[in-house]
Design a protein around this nucleic acid. Structure first.
Lengths: 190, 190
DNA sequence: TGACGAAGCGGACTGTGGTCCGCTACGGTC
DNA sequence: GACCGTAGCGGACCACAGTCCGCTTCGTCA
């Protein structure tokens, strides 16, 4: 299949839209920013935004995967226990804590990226990476049903769940992280 | 506080709306039914629907809690292993399987009830019951962090997760149920 | 039974996400 | 450089969730 290059104007507009969205989200919050505003700020028609990103969730996912790249780096080639070198069980616990922090930090963006009726929402973008990583660690640790448990763990760290937890338990995120790390370890050993 | 009785016309309209929604959902699917249609079918203004149910999610939750009541009965006073009489661990495994089936059966309704930006979405209505039940069984089984693990288990059975699973793995729901039952047992023992 | 305060009603209205389609300009070819 | 097929553009347009507020009806008290 011929890998058709992205046209110059399309590339320019893509960057403009991403920059505009990032700026508006920072200035006035994710919830108060409309797609029209993003398009206007980017100096671009609304149709262009939708052609490129599909919908709001797609735009959010794009922004998010940029930010997730850094965490992916730390996992693949950073120091243990998050990176390679530690026991699978420890790595999984470290991942749970780190991923919780990531989700909590970008909560509204993640929430947006998961919303909408676009088939299997979050199941696009970087989600595959997280799932793969967890499933791999679980199977290394000799757990049963590694694929299923990977998804179970990630489901416990979904935006809805995290929102609920931080909203209810307030600032006690570190206790939560500890509990989730214990949970991850349990999943890996049994 | 004075428990003000529901006005007669309000009660009548509430039943009409619920019946209209149920009929339309059955006839043309949840996704293709608009709030205007529900209101029109019920012979009621749109404002009335919103006054009573808050939003789409609220309406869906109401319908859902009616249907969930039956499962609640089976849990509280039905035969084991779902009902009382079996070991906590077995009951939890049975619950996981039964709840999965419930979610899969009412998938689009549950999805709708969880959508929307109304604070902590599903965290209203019957969710409290499920959480309570799981947390109780887990603590009976001597598990650590019973409250957290109850939520983790339910998160793994959230509508998004279930949708993803049945959408991807197709008809193999029984294998999934078995895996989730194992997972529940693991959570209870460790 | 009449009167009155308030709960409840309803549908016009608004804001926003997403679509559509005629127009533009990019970039490959001769 | 001129030409042309097509990817990409843009903003008018549409559908639908949710709000608002003047009007209606309920039910209570005398």
């Amino acid at each position: 299949m011929p890998v058709r290059r992205e046209r110059a104007d399309a590339a320019r507009n893509r960057l403009r839209v991403l920059a505009a969205a990032e700026a508006l989200f920072a200035e006035q919050g994710v919830a108060d920013t409309t797609m029209d505003e993003v398009a206007a700020r980017a100096g671009v028609g609304k149709g262009t935004v939708y052609r490129r990103f599909g919908d709001q969730a797609g735009l959010a996912a794009e922004l998010l995967s940029e930010r997730g790249r850094e965490l992916q780096e730390r996992i693949m080639s950073g120091p243990p226990p998050l990176g390679p070198g530690a026991e699978p069980q420890e790595r999984l616990a470290a991942f749970a804590a780190a991923y919780l922090e990531f989700q909590a930090t970008h909560l509204d963006l993640v929430l947006l990226s998961e919303s909408g009726s676009a088939g299997s929402r979050l199941r696009k973008g970087s989600y595959a990476f997280w799932r793969q990583h967890c499933a791999w660690l679980l199977s290394q640790a000799g757990a049963v049903d590694p694929a299923l448990r990977a998804e179970a763990l990630l489901a416990s760290l979904s935006a809805e769940q995290v929102q609920d937890w931080v909203g209810r338990d307030g600032a006690d995120v570190s206790a939560l992280a500890a509990g989730l790390a214990r949970l991850a370890a349990t999943l890996a050993t049994a």
